[in-house]
Design a protein around this nucleic acid. Structure first.
Length: 393
DNA sequence: AAGCTAGACAACCGCGTTCCG
DNA sequence: TCGGAACGCGGTTGTCTAGCT
């Protein structure tokens, strides 16, 4: 391995930093400012690689860092952004004042990934395991009549059921031989990416040119496989706007996340569309107070969706669209993103979005906790379903 | 009390990108 | 335009500690 010149010294110290070394870094930065890290070890009197000095400063010593535990709001923001842009920790961290990419990455790897898995959601794709199961079935021919998945992990079955409550999907007719409850499961697990795009981005809710610009761009996402920084910023904006506006939409986000991350958004290379865009909450969004939240709001009326009446189906889909994605009502003075010299500046939120989570009887304080609580409630509500390991039979 | 294990977090490594002469 | 140095990022590894057996 070829070490950088600044590290290519035999006597470079490695490992845990001492308080004395920290003090030297702090003294140096306070005097000269952060930067020119290759010169820092020599000027500060440290036997460390410049790269290591920079890391120590950015991840630990910076005065603006928060060292307390993550709040539920931060936790949810990480999940949302990860769903939207994947493991772009630096970008995600920019949306969380006082947090570093390393912080976010560690928190994800040690906490959130496991929590999502426990909730039945694949932390990589943000899709329910049940959908992966169905995808697997499509490949392996599980749909064919008489096939059973009784040999599959019971937890996976459980997760499949859970996903019904956590995801709002476009309906698709159940495969032949599936019962009504099966179709519930299937509906929750089958959707086409293209239809997602249309379902979560109802153009009718857009009020101004810049919004339309973003939405038109998103509408073209499937045509291009490249995801540039601007695209990700757009995704972040959409995510944060959706969070602020429809603060009870946590469950649906995974739906959106699958769209935004799995495929690829193609947006025009116009920086103005990102920085100057603003949007207003739709009437629909304003009317739906979090206080009036009902879990049923997240669920589609399957019978209506399966109805042969096109108008009835459209009505349901339109309702779901209004629920899923709402333009924001963010005060642009508080919500700002700029891009200068290819450096993405932190978005500042005058007020950190406060999310309302699906109501549970336990009063969970975070989205994840709410989901877990809801899971428990649903198991109590439908114990019979979980007794039968052969849902798909 | 000793050993083991898992979780949390700090630090390192390799690689891609940007900067600059 | 090119090449080397510096920087930044994401993945991985290492270390410490608390809890359990």
């Amino acid at each position: 391995m070829v070490r950088p010149p600044c590290c290519d010294k035999l006597n470079v110290k490695r490992g845990i930093w001492t308080a004395e070394e920290d003090a030297k870094i702090l003294a140096y930065v306070s005097k000269h400012g952060a930067g020119n890290w290759t010169a820092v070890p020599k000027k500060a009197g440290l036997r460390r690689c410049g790269k290591s000095c920079r890391l120590r400063w950015t991840n630990y010593l910076r005065p603006d860092l928060k060292h307390d535990s993550f709040t539920p709001q931060e936790e949810e923001m990480i999940i949302r952004l990860h769903a939207a842009i994947g493991s772009r920790w630096a970008i995600i961290a920019q949306q969380l004042p006082g947090r570093t990419d390393n912080d976010v990455k560690n928190y994800w790897n040690t906490k959130l990934r496991k929590k999502l898995s426990d909730m039945g959601i694949d932390p990589v794709t943000h899709k329910p395991f049940s959908q992966i199961l169905v995808d697997y079935g499509n490949i392996g021919g599980l749909y064919k009549c008489g096939n059973r998945i009784g040999s599959l992990n019971r937890d996976m079955i459980k997760n499949a059921f859970m996903s019904k409550s956590q995801h709002l999907y476009q309906p698709s007719p159940p495969p032949p031989g599936f019962s009504n409850i099966n179709s519930h499961l299937m509906m929750s697990t089958t959707m086409a990416v293209s239809s997602q795009a249309e379902s979560i981005i109802p153009g009718g809710l857009l009020n101004n040119t810049s919004d339309n610009m973003i939405m038109n761009s998103l509408g073209n996402y499937s045509m291009n496989s490249s995801v540039d920084l601007l695209t990700q910023l757009q995704a972040i904006k959409l995510v944060t706007e959706a969070s602020n506006c429809a603060n009870n939409m946590s469950a649906q986000f995974y739906h959106e996340g699958s769209l935004l991350s799995s495929s690829s958004l193609s947006l025009p290379s116009s920086s103005s569309s990102s920085s100057s865009s603003s949007s207003n909450c739709s009437t629909a969004g304003q009317e739906k107070s979090p206080l009036n939240f009902s879990w049923q709001d997240f669920l589609l009326d399957e019978d209506a969706l399966l109805s042969t009446d096109p108008q009835e189906r459209n009505n349901i889909v339109e309702q779901s669209q209004n629920v899923i994605f709402l333009p924001n009502q963010i005060n642009n003075e508080n919500y700002n993103t700029t891009q200068t010299n290819n450096t993405v500046q932190r978005m500042d939120y005058g007020a950190v979005p406060s999310y309302e989570f699906p109501a549970t009887s336990s009063g969970a304080s975070s989205f994840v906790e709410a989901m877990v609580d809801r899971e428990n409630e649903m198991f109590l509500e439908f114990p019979d379903l979980l007794e039968d390991p052969c849902f798909y039979n």
